[in-house]
Amino acid sequence: MKTEIKTEKKKNKVMLRQGVRKEVLGLMLLLPALASILLFKYFPIVLGVFETFFKMNIVKLPGEFIGFDNYIRAFTDKQFLGAFLHNAKAFCYSLCMNFWVPIVLAMLVDEARRGKTIFRLLYFIPACAPSIAMTVLWKFFWQPDYGLANYILSIFGIPGQMWLNSESWVYFCIYFPHLVISGGMNLVIYLAALQDVPGELYEAALVDGVGIFNRIRYITIPCIKHIIILMLTLSIINAFNLMENIMILTGGGPSNSTQTMLLYAYQQGVNSMDYSYAMTMTTIIFIVTMTLTVVFNKVTREKD
């Protein structure tokens, strides 16, 4: 009896020691990643939101407390509100020009009986080039004097356009390159999703005499719907975080017609050194994007 209790106690002790060891070891292993994430991800975010309530003084942080003044300033800033509309416009362009093309192309590639992998590779390789490099290249194409775009128009006898310098063409010029830049990558994603659509469904539909378009509508689209929704969410996020392309192609012009929220924030931060205002705007952009994403996901979920 006594020995049994003793061994039981010993067992408990060993288990306890093992538990402690596990805990310590686990945390030790997590330490490098945890330190990095806390210091370089969470700390800046908290610092950024904290500073929005101050008039920042970079020599003596955090500066002077001003409450919600930065937010009031942003919501009454006409340029910032205009920039929001530019972002919304950019989203409409990306939806109308870019969003559906990779889906259609992926379906067509999927129809190819031979050379499917070759087609996939052909569409994929150009998309691997860094988007910034490609955007700079397209700037040469849109050049009004000797650019390729105007040359191609002149072959058909159409007068040249100002492209990036004309307010009516500028969004087209920003989003057209993305058919190549991000289109190829999206095509590969859709193509991967299309591989998971069960082939028997199509066979059964054919036996029932369902036409090709109805097959696409009632079988293909519902089967890849989750990817489509995901990509749509990503395109919302991208459109409201649009900046790098604009910086390269137009720098916000012509006459501020492409100044996006983020570009405005960047300019306020870098050119005017108004960091707390810039951070206020990035915080607002973050909240706007999050809200849009959540609302969008809720709406699409409810429909199911």
Binding site: I45, I237, Y275, M279, T283, F286, T289
Partner: peptide, 15 residues
């Protein structure tokens, strides 16, 4: 952290 956008991190990191 996957939700943080690069741009929200940009200025605080710089500071």
């Amino acid at each position: 952290t996957q939700m943080f956008s690069t741009t929200a991190l940009l200025f605080p990191t710089y500071i």
